[in-house]
Design a protein around this nucleic acid. Structure first.
Length: 335
DNA sequence: AATTATCTCAACCGCTCGTAT
DNA sequence: GATACGAGCGGTTGAGATAAT
């Protein structure tokens, strides 16, 4: 199926999907000789591929620490936050998601996030969309992480932390060259250092903190978390489906390398203590629900929470409402 | 059951940057 | 300093899978 490119009389290069034999050859060669220069590696290994192709295949697929499977809620949150900070710096973002490749993150962004921007009829780089992400989706992701963490069904958490623990070493969050995934101390001198493994919610700041000390910019304590979705019985928000339609299993969502303890999770206390009722909030977008729409009534009558996987409905109504308010605000400011 | 539309993701392309000569 | 080369990055493509009609 692969096509070939004629380089000269007797040297042609394969393109297209890799065969099992090619994979095997590349893996064996790297196991014996290391990565080295990709062009010479391709030649020496006898692969009729460009060095680029070999490198890509190795980094994105064959590398033993490549993490496959669904993007977890925590990873989604990280991607959103880091993208808001760095933009399309996929490689840089990928450095903070152990085992995930820049290609995978890029694909996720294009297929999920951009799709939602399209559905909301706004540009992915627009302020409205960015505000929607920051004030609605990200807090809600945090809420769902929290809700799923405290859910009784998660009794298996402790036993299911193996997925990415195998990525210790080269794949620890924060540095591709790091050799440890143990709890990272930060410059915070407070003895109440609640940082939890690799991805933490800092009680003092309300921020998620990466092991190398980078705090995710947003203070989630002040973020609006709609309380009506904060119950275990609302399982649809706790893992049946993610906000962008990604397939996220409720187990893996919570049990991968983040290792958030089930009980006495200070990060959760942080949220619980600091959550602002949506009717009280004027600065967060959900506060807009006071402005005319009887959100509680809608919720109580289950107008859009009935049946099946309701998270997409939730997102759309919520997001559209928020965007509408954003536009109204813009219009008012222009008057 | 067949066809069409949509989605996903592996792979490629072209560009930039860093390093060696 | 100029040039060549290789590595890496972000953007894009297209084949296969899946969903919808």
């Amino acid at each position: 199926m692969s096509s070939t490119i004629q380089i000269d009389e007797d040297m042609d290069l394969r393109r297209g999907p890799w065969t099992v034999d090619e994979d095997f050859t590349l893996i064996n060669y790297i196991a014996n000789h290391g990565e080295g220069r990709w062009n010479s590696l391709a030649r020496c290994a006898g692969l009729k591929r460009t060095g680029k192709s070999c490198r890509l295949r190795w980094l994105n697929y064959l590398r033993p620490d490549v993490r496959r499977g669904n993007i977890t809620l925590q990873e989604q949150l990280l991607i959103l936050e880091l993208h808001s900070r760095w933009g399309n710096r996929w490689s840089k973002i990928a450095q903070h998601l152990p085992g995930r490749t820049d290609n995978e993150i890029k694909n996720y962004w294009r297929t999920r996030v951009q799709k939602h921007a399209k559905q909301l009829k706004c540009d992915v780089n627009s302020k409205q969309f960015k505000d929607t992400m920051r004030y609605l989706w990200m807090p809600r992701l945090v809420e769902r992480i929290q809700a799923a963490t405290v859910a009784p069904a998660n009794t298996s958490i402790a036993a299911t932390t193996t997925t990415t623990t195998a990525t210790t070493g080269a794949c620890s969050i924060g540095s591709s060259t790091s050799t440890t995934t143990t709890t990272t101390t930060t410059t915070n001198n407070n003895s109440n250092n609640y940082h939890i493994n690799n991805n933490n919610l800092d009680v003092q700041t309300g921020q998620m903190v990466l092991p190398h000390g980078v705090a995710i910019g947003q203070d989630f304590r002040g973020a609006q978390v709609t309380p009506s979705y904060n119950t275990p019985e609302n399982s649809s928000t706790a893992g049946s489906s993610d906000s962008f339609g990604a397939q996220v299993s409720p187990v893996s969502d919570l049990t991968d390398y983040y290792n958030i303890p089930v009980n006495n999770n200070p990060s959760l206390e942080c949220f619980q203590a600091s959550q602002v009722g949506y009717q009280d909030s004027l600065t967060s977008p959900s506060g807009y629900f006071n402005n005319g729409l009887d959100f509680q009534a809608m919720e109580q009558s289950n107008q859009w929470l009935d049946g099946g996987d309701t998270s997409d409905n939730l997102w759309n109504v919520d997001d559209l409402w928020f965007l509408q308010q954003q536009l109204n605000n813009n219009n008012n400011n222009n008057i």
